[in-house]
Computed example of a mutant assay.
Amino acid sequence: HERVHGVYVDTGFMRKNESADVMAAYEKAGFRNVRLRDASTEFLAAVGSETNPEIKRKRIGAAFLAVENDVLEHLPRGEWLLGQGTIYPDTIESGGTRESALIKTHHNRVPELLVRIEAGEIVEPLVQFYKDEVREIGRALGLPSRLIEKQPFPGPGLAVRFLCTDEPAAWSENSQLSQVASGFNLKARVLPVRGVGVQGDERTYAHTALVTGDYDERRIAELSPAITNSLRDVNRVVFWAGSKGSIDEFHVEPTTTSREGLDVLREADARVRDILAEYDTQKRIWQCPVVMLPLKRHGESTIAIRPVESHDGMTAQYSRLPWPVIERITSAVLQVPGVGALLYDVTNKPPATIEWE
Rank of each mutant, 00 (worst) to 15 (best):
L342I: 03
I60G: 00
I103M: 06
G78L: 05
V336S: 03
T255R: 15
A119Q: 13
Y205A: 07
R3F: 05
D274C: 07
R218F: 04
N174Q: 08
E2A: 12
E124Q: 15
K58C: 03
G183S: 12
P125M: 08
E79R: 15
Y344N: 10
A159T: 06
V123A: 11
L81P: 02
N69R: 14
G183W: 03
D10R: 11
V333G: 03
R37K: 10
T315N: 12
Q317A: 09
V127C: 14
H5V: 15
V272A: 09
R297F: 07
I305C: 07
R139N: 10
E121A: 09
E136D: 06
A39S: 13
K349P: 00
K16A: 11
G138Y: 04
A316C: 04
Q128H: 11
T165E: 08
H74T: 15
V325N: 04
P225Y: 02
R37L: 12
P351H: 06
G213C: 04
N235C: 13
Q335T: 07
D345E: 13
E50A: 05
R57G: 02
D312T: 06
S230R: 14
A29F: 08
I117N: 01
N69G: 07
Q84F: 09
N17E: 11
D312P: 01
V4T: 14
L82S: 04
R306W: 06
G195V: 15
R146T: 04
R259T: 06
A316G: 02
V123G: 03
T256H: 11
T41Y: 02
E99D: 13
E118Y: 02
E124M: 14
L44R: 03
G78V: 11
Q335P: 01
I303W: 00
T165R: 11
E249T: 10
D248F: 05
R32T: 15
T228R: 08
H1C: 04
V272N: 00
G61E: 03
R116W: 07
S172H: 10
R271M: 03
V67H: 02
R109T: 14
W356Y: 13
T256E: 08
A270V: 07
G195T: 15
E149A: 02
G183C: 05
R146M: 02
E112S: 14
V47N: 10
